[in-house]
Design a protein around this nucleic acid. Structure first.
Lengths: 247, 247
DNA sequence: GTGCGTATGTGCGCTGCCGCACATACAAGC
DNA sequence: GCTTGTATGTGCGGCAGCGCACATACGCAC
């Protein structure tokens, strides 16, 4: 973990060619995102796009019944607020900070303007958006067909990729909210994984011990989403090495 | 149903201002899409974008187990092949003709070129893509929390909006494939809906008798997706009235 | 009309997840 | 240390949907 926050910790920002980055840099504002903060909710006008460095954000759907489910997560590989440049400005989902950390944000108007002017920035953001769509649509199919344990594995792998740390700081209760299942279901699945030596956990902390084991027990969705993200962003121009991290 | 096929039957094409449409028109090619035809599949390079008029296309995910689920459907409100202008060129899903009919298609290269040149075309396509993302992410949450009957209602309503006909020509088996559930589950749900007077059906045909009834029995997802589609496309410039049809 | 392919109806037992009601045990603050 | 809030463990009945095995019945092709 770099002690000094840097925009290059975000893969999209790091992938921008120097010329474009220089234009953008003065407008980047570092913000701390505490756990549970809501970056946007349905129908509320989003004021900034957020490029996470150490924070992780969940795109959550809350149903009328109060039940919730995550359609995608965003970490240092992406950006929160694609609806700004997609033109809709609002979305039907909420964006909630799932792991506290930092992000750089850009003002809405500036981003919208620059998106239309800077061709490479536009291309990069659109390619990332397609990766996000992959994640969403795969989650739809995954929710239909795969078990809680498989989905927990997928979720742990995706999340760990974003923090680059063995230990995740999160409660099973919160994970249940993301997956849209009961907290008890997560407890049981996590128990199995711990007994199998894949993870170990204590009150609010989960450590990944055996990634290969998790990948075996995960459904195919993890590898698929990961592969697509890599494909879509790896051949982008790149100032720093941040984008190369595949899995 | 107009006897003469016209690009204006597709809401996106109809929404283009005359100047932009004139540029595009010579490149539009009318094609017949038979039931079951696969417009693209994972990793296969897409050669055309399809603007359906009477056809309906399902964006399907096929899992390793062979099970499938639709993450979104595309009818005359949209376009198949957003990955072309999003920059990825391929996707991880398949696109399968769910209801036979017609579509206008545009060559891949021409569309990619024009997307970068024509600002209004770009804006329209991106807004539609955001509506598609709404459909995908809502489907993810819906698959998690709602019953087969609720989802069948949602599916019937969305599909009927696309054909503008009382009667849909489709088997329960195919619907089951879209929803990612058992055929018997669809049979049972359809039986309930018929007994309630919402629909009537016979071998391969389903007629919607009571839209309001279906909306009541549907989950909130139908209204939400529909509303977002309307919002994103209604304030677009519009040569014809096609885009105004909100439900 | 007759026949046949295929769409639909129905009944099993089974499983995974739910909803609830607790028991337990951790960790931070006094 | 002890208390207290909260995270986790566990057991129950219930139910929706699954997988299977059929029975039935529709409608097209001949």
């Amino acid at each position: 973990m770099p002690a000094t926050p840097s925009p290059n910790q975000n893969h999209l920002l790091a992938a921008l060619p120097t010329a474009e980055f220089e234009l953008l840099a003065p407008h980047l504002e570092l913000v701390a995102l505490p756990l549970g903060e809501m970056l946007y909710e349905p129908d509320r006008q989003l004021q900034h796009a957020y490029f996470p460095t150490t924070a992780i954000i969940s795109l959550l759907h809350v149903m009328e019944s109060g039940a919730s489910a995550e359609s995608a997560g965003v970490g240092n590989e992406g950006v929160v607020g694609v609806s700004l440049f997609m033109g809709g400005e609002t979305t039907t989902s909420s964006a909630v900070v799932q792991t506290a950390g930092h992000a750089y944000r850009l003002d809405r108007r500036w981003l919208m303007q620059e998106f239309n002017r800077a061709e490479l920035l536009q291309r990069l953001l659109l390619r990332y958006t397609q990766a996000l769509m992959t994640q969403m649509s795969q989650t739809a199919a995954c929710n239909r067909h795969h078990s809680v344990e498989q989905q927990l594995c997928r979720w742990l792998l995706l999340t760990q990729d974003r923090v680059a740390q063995r230990e995740l700081v999160i409660t099973q209760e919160l994970i249940a909210g993301m997956l849209g299942v009961r907290r008890e279901g997560v407890t049981e699945a996590a128990g199995n994984l711990q007994r199998a030596g894949c993870i170990s956990y204590r009150r609010g902390h989960i450590s990944v011990l055996d990634r290969a084991g998790l990948e075996t027990r995960s459904c195919e969705c993890y590898a698929l989403v990961k592969k697509e993200l890599t494909r879509l962003l790896s051949d982008a121009p790149c100032r720093h090495k941040a984008t190369t991290a595949a899995r």
